[in-house]
């Protein structure tokens, strides 16, 4: 096991809402409301989950800066989505004990999504055909995994 004996995690409750940087709200909105985006019409929480995964692969964690904007209520996440978030925290810290600190679990998710959404926005509205590119990336990543 990695690092499980080094950090003592404080027991905390998960936040009521999942937050992003206020300045990045537009990135979310554009990705799901501009017709040419492959994420057109998807729910904010689904986009957040994608951005979190994308952030893990493309950028790493970036602390939230400035005013927070509460994107959606945590209770609207499905059990499956919650377990993905928890797993990201376990992998990020290398320690399953992190699950005690539910606040930290969500902070980690928010920080990955924080960098991920920026990268994703750049990808979708960049010069390449985003849907095909993202699909190719997922296919090759899944083959490796």
């Amino acid at each position: 096991m990695t690092g499980s004996n080094t950090t003592q995690y404080e027991e905390t409750d998960a936040p009521r809402d999942v937050a992003i940087e206020s300045s990045k709200r537009e990135l979310y909105e554009e990705l799901r409301t501009i017709n040419s985006s492959p994420f057109y019409g998807v729910e904010l929480r689904e986009l957040f989950m994608f951005a979190m995964g994308y952030g893990r692969h493309k950028a790493g964690r970036t602390e939230l800066d400035g005013d927070p904007h509460y994107l959606f209520g945590r209770t609207t996440l499905t059990d499956e989505q919650e377990w993905i978030i928890k797993s990201v925290a376990v992998k990020g810290t290398g320690d399953p004990d992190v699950l005690r600190d539910e606040r930290l679990v969500y902070t980690i998710a928010q920080e990955y999504a924080n960098s991920g959404i920026e990268k994703l926005h750049g990808k979708v509205f960049g010069p390449e055909e985003a849907l095909n590119e993202l699909t190719r990336e997922l296919k090759s990543l899944h083959e490796i995994e």
Partner: peptide, 20 residues
């Protein structure tokens, strides 16, 4: 779009799920 967010969320985080 639904498949993309679903598979992206699963595959980009697949290593985290397996690790956990």
């Amino acid at each position: 779009a639904e498949y993309l967010v679903e598979s992206g969320t699963l595959i980009f985080n697949e290593n985290a799920l397996k690790f956990t």
